[in-house]
Design a binder for these strands. Structure first.
Lengths: 352, 352
DNA sequence: GTGAAAGCGCTAACAT
DNA sequence: ATGTTAGCGCTTTCAC
C-alpha cells in the first residue's frame, strides 16, 4: 500500500500512527490516509506486535461461562477494554486450578497486554505465575490474596454478616449456612461474614451450622437441602453461598411441602436477574456485576498503560435485597422441641 | 533457546513442530524438547502466524453478552474450539449491525482463523464482508441467508407452529404474538411459524394478532403487555418471541391482577434455566444452546481445516416444554364479548 | 520530512 | 538429518 501511495513503507507507517504522524508533512499524511482508506488498509497487528512487543489483546477468565453471574461481567469487561482498542480473549477454567494455569499460559503465549481473572483460588499458583511473567493482572470477584495483585470484589463479609443480622432480627434461633467449596476467597469471606454474624450480641443463645457444598449450582443446592432435611434440620433459616444454591434449596423445600418463608427462610447471594421472579422471590445480596467488570477493566487498563500502580483491594459495598423468601421465625415448638423443623425424616420415599 | 540447546533455530523449530519432527533424529528431538521444557519455552504464536499466515484464534460474536441465552453458547463454542487448540475472541454487537461490522473488521485484522457469528441480521452486509474476506464463518442461531454461509439454528418455524397448534388445541380463539424486531432471521422464522399456525385447520374462525417489540428483554415484554391491556386485549393467549419478553408479560399481568393461565396463557421461547422456576412455570420451546454451540464450533473447525465444505443449513428440532403458564381458554364471555380479557382499560393509573 | 536498513521470532525452501 | 537464508509486515533507529 505504501508503494501504491508512492511513498516508503516507513513513511506510511509513521503517517498512520498517531504517535508519529506529526513527523510527517500533513499533505503526505492525508494522502496516505486517503489511499489507505481507499484500499481498506490497516496495519497487521500481528506484525506490529512482533515488532513492538505490545499487543492489543487482553484475556478474561471466568470459572463458568454458563453461569448467569458472569454474563454482565464479561459484557462489561469486554465493553470497557474495547473502548481503549483492546480485543478480549475469553475462556472458562471450569473451577479447575490446573485449567486456569494452562489458560493463562496460553494467553501469555499470545502476549496479552493484561489479564482479568475471575477464577483465582486463594493462594492460587496461577496468581504467582501472572506476577512472575509480569503480566498486568486484575483479580475480579475472587481474590487470590497475592501481595502483588490488585483485586476488585464485593464486600461479601460485611454483606453476609448483615444478612445474619437481619435473619436474627427476624427471631431465628438456629441458622444454617451452605458455603461453597472453601478454596475461593469468596467462600472464605462469606463464611467469615457468617461467623462474624454468629458472634453478634443478638446471636446469644442461637445455634449456627455450616455445610460445605461441592458445586455452585441449583442441583447441588437441592441435594444438600434434601440431605439436611433427612438428617433432621434444626435451622429455621438457611443462608446460601449464592442464588443458585438457594434456588436449589427452595426447590427441595417445595418438593417436600415445607413452606418458605413460613417454616424456613432462605437467602442467596448475587441477586441474579431471576431472583425477584421466583416464588417466593429471593432475599439476597446484590452483586454489582457490571460495575465490578467496568472497574476491573478500568484498573487493568491503568495497569497496562501506566505501568505500576500501587496494589489495591477494592471492595464494593454489598447490600441486602429483602424479598419474600425470608420471614419471621416460626413461633411454635421452637424452644421446647429443637427438631421442630424436621418435618419428615424421609420427606418422600426414595427421593433422598 | 536453540542456542542453549546447541542447535540451529530451524532445527529447534522443526523438532517442536509435530508436522516436521519426523525429519529430525529422535535424540535431537528429545534433547530439544527437554531443554524447551526446562526453559519453559514455547513458540511465539504471533511470530509463527506472521510467517505461516495462520493463527490459532477464532472470533465469536453475540448480540448481548448479558443475555443468559448466550452463556451456554459461548461456553460450548469456546470449549469445542479449545480442544483443537484455538483460543477465542468474544465480543458483543449489542444488536447493532454497524457494530457487528466493525467487530468483524477488528477480528479480521487479527487474522482469526474463523468466525462464529450469533448476531447476523437477514442479508446482513457483515455476512458479505466475511465471505469477501474469505474468513471461514458459521452463522449461529441467526441466519443471514447468505448463499455461501453455513448456519446452525433451532427450527423455530416448526417450533412456533407447534406452539400455536398446542394453544389452539386448548381452545383459544384469539391469539397474539409478540415478535422481536423483524431484522433477524429468528424473528422472521418464528413469525412464519405463527402465521403457519394461524392457517391450521383448527385455526378456522380464530383471531390472530402480531405486535413487534423493539427489544428482547423483560422490561420490553412488560411494556408491551401493559400497552396491549390498555388497548383492550382480545387474545386469551400471548405467544412471545422469547422467554424474557414472556416474563415481562407475566409481570405485567400479575401487576394488574390478571391470572395466568386462567385468564391468559403465555408462552416463551428458549427455555432459559429459570423458566421452570417461575410462577406459573413458563411453557416454552426448548433451545439446545450447548449443542448449537458445539456443532457450530465443530462445523467451523471443519471449514478451517478442510477448506470448503458444502454450505449447510442445519436446523435442530425444537420441542415444546409444557408448563403451567398455558391452560384452557377461559370459557365465559368468549364469544359474546370480544373484550372479555380486557379487564381494565387503564390497569393502574399512571403506570402505562 | 522522508528514505534506508535492521530486526521482532518464527518457518520453509533450499542447500549440504 | 541439520544448517543457511530469506522473508512474513511491521516499527524504529539512523542517516540525509
Amino acid at each position: 500500500m505504501a508503494t501504491k501511495a508512492g511513498v516508503h513503507v516507513s513513511t506510511a507507517s509513521r503517517a498512520l500512527n498517531p504517535k508519529s504522524e506529526h513527523r510527517i508533512s500533513s499533505k503526505t499524511v492525508s494522502k496516505i490516509e486517503r489511499i489507505a482508506e481507499q484500499l481498506g488498509y490497516s496495519a497487521n497487528p500481528l506484525a506490529s506486535s512482533l515488532r513492538t512487543q505490545r499487543t492489543g489483546t487482553v484475556g478474561l477468565v471466568v470459572p463458568n461461562l454458563s453461569d448467569p453471574l458472569f454474563g454482565p461481567i464479561i459484557a462489561s469487561v469486554q465493553e470497557r477494554v474495547a473502548r481503549d482498542g483492546y480485543i478480549t480473549f475469553v475462556a472458562s477454567s471450569d473451577y479447575k486450578p490446573e485449567k486456569l494455569l494452562s489458560i493463562i499460559q496460553t494467553m501469555a503465549r499470545q502476549h496479552v497486554a493484561g489479564l482479568v481473572i475471575a477464577s483465582f483460588d486463594l493462594n492460587d499458583p496461577a496468581a504467582d505465575l501472572c506476577v512472575e511473567m509480569g503480566i498486568p493482572t486484575v483479580a475480579l470477584l475472587r481474590d487470590p490474596r497475592h501481595p502483588d495483585l490488585s483485586s476488585i470484589a464485593m464486600d461479601d463479609e460485611k454483606g453476609v454478616e448483615a444478612l445474619v443480622d437481619y435473619i436474627l432480627g427476624l427471631g431465628h434461633k438456629a441458622v444454617a449456612y451452605i458455603t461453597a467449596p472453601l478454596a475461593a476467597s469468596t467462600a472464605q469471606n462469606r463464611l467469615a461474614g457468617f461467623v462474624a454474624g454468629s458472634k453478634l450480641p443478638k446471636a446469644a443463645g442461637c445455634k449456627f451450622e455450616v455445610i460445605e457444598s461441592q458445586a455452585y449450582d441449583i442441583e447441588e443446592g437441592e441435594r444438600i437441602m434434601k440431605t439436611m432435611l433427612a438428617n433432621g434440620l434444626e435451622a429455621t433459616a438457611i443462608l446460601c453461598f449464592n442464588d443458585l444454591l438457594a434456588v436449589g434449596a427452595l426447590v427441595a423445600l417445595k418438593s417436600v411441602g415445607i413452606s418458605c418463608p413460613e417454616r424456613i427462610s432462605v437467602t442467596g447471594v448475587n441477586d441474579l436477574p431471576f431472583a425477584a421472579l421466583l416464588t417466593p422471590p429471593l432475599t439476597t445480596l446484590h452483586n454489582a456485576g457490571r460495575r465490578l467488570g467496568q472497574e476491573g477493566a478500568e484498573l487493568l487498563i491503568r495497569l497496562i498503560e501506566k505501568g505500576d500502580c500501587p496494589v489495591e483491594h477494592i471492595l464494593f459495598p454489598s447490600h441486602i435485597v429483602i424479598r419474600g423468601s425470608t420471614g419471621p421465625a416460626p413461633k411454635a415448638r421452637q424452644s421446647d422441641d429443637n427438631r421442630a423443623t424436621k418435618v419428615r425424616r424421609k420427606p418422600t420415599s426414595g427421593k433422598i
